[in-house]
Amino acid sequence: MFEAVGARVRLHALDLDSGREIAVGADEPVVLASVFKVLLVLEFARQADAGQLDPRHRVTVGRADRLGGWGTAGCLDDVEMSLRDLAFFTMSVSDNSAADALLRHVGLDTVRMLAAELGLDRTRVVGGPRELLASMLQDVGARDEAEFARLYPTLGPEKLRTLRVLDADRTTRGTARDMTRLLRLIWQDRAGSPAACAWVRELMERQVFRHRIVSGFPDGVRIAAKTGTLPGLHMEVGVVTHPDGGRYALAVFAATDAAATDSAARDTAAMDRAATASAASARADRPAVDATIGRAARAAVDALRGAR
Rank of each mutant, 00 (worst) to 15 (best):
A279Y: 02
A284E: 08
A264R: 07
I186V: 15
L16W: 02
D78T: 06
L83Q: 13
S34H: 06
A191D: 05
P231G: 13
P29K: 07
G119F: 12
F253G: 05
G6C: 02
P287Q: 04
R58G: 03
A45G: 10
A288G: 07
A280Q: 11
F217C: 10
T180P: 03
G246N: 03
M113H: 14
M1E: 09
G306V: 07
R10S: 11
A258E: 02
L76H: 10
T110N: 12
D139C: 00
F89N: 12
D262P: 00
I223M: 01
R20H: 10
A26Q: 09
R206E: 13
A251R: 03
V111C: 08
A297E: 03
V79R: 08
I186H: 01
P194W: 10
V5W: 01
M81P: 00
D262F: 03
L114H: 00
A134E: 14
L118R: 00
L103T: 02
L118S: 02
T268C: 07
A23K: 14
V126H: 05
A291C: 05
V30E: 00
D262E: 08
T162Q: 15
I22H: 06
R122I: 06
E28D: 15
Q188S: 15
G156V: 01
M204I: 08
P55M: 12
T227C: 06
G69W: 03
L185N: 05
A269Q: 13
I22G: 00
R104Y: 07
L83F: 04
A258M: 08
M113F: 09
T123Q: 05
A260C: 05
W70G: 05
A280K: 09
M81N: 06
R181V: 08
G19M: 02
D54V: 05
A87V: 02
L86V: 05
L132Q: 12
S18L: 10
G246R: 03
A274I: 09
M179E: 11
A224P: 03
A251Q: 02
M179N: 05
P55H: 08
S82N: 07
R58Q: 11
V61H: 02
V239I: 09
E202K: 02
L118I: 11
R295F: 01
H12Q: 14
T171I: 01
L76P: 04
T268Q: 13
A98C: 10
G246Q: 06
A196M: 09
A280L: 12
E131L: 15
A260Q: 13
A26L: 11
D169N: 09
R295V: 13
A101N: 00
I213H: 05
R266P: 12
L185F: 11
N96D: 15
R295C: 01
D272T: 13
T180V: 15
D169H: 03
A149V: 14
D121Y: 07
I293W: 02
R63Q: 14
A284C: 13
G127C: 01
V140R: 04
F36R: 09
R286N: 14
R181H: 14
E147N: 08
V24M: 10
R177K: 09
E43F: 04
T229L: 13
F253C: 07
T110H: 13
L304C: 10
G119V: 12
L182F: 09
E28R: 14
Q138T: 15
V165Q: 14
G6S: 07
A274Y: 05
V289C: 00
V125M: 07
A259T: 14
A282Q: 09
L132T: 11
H234T: 14
L203I: 11
V59Y: 03
L83Y: 10
D169I: 08
D121M: 05
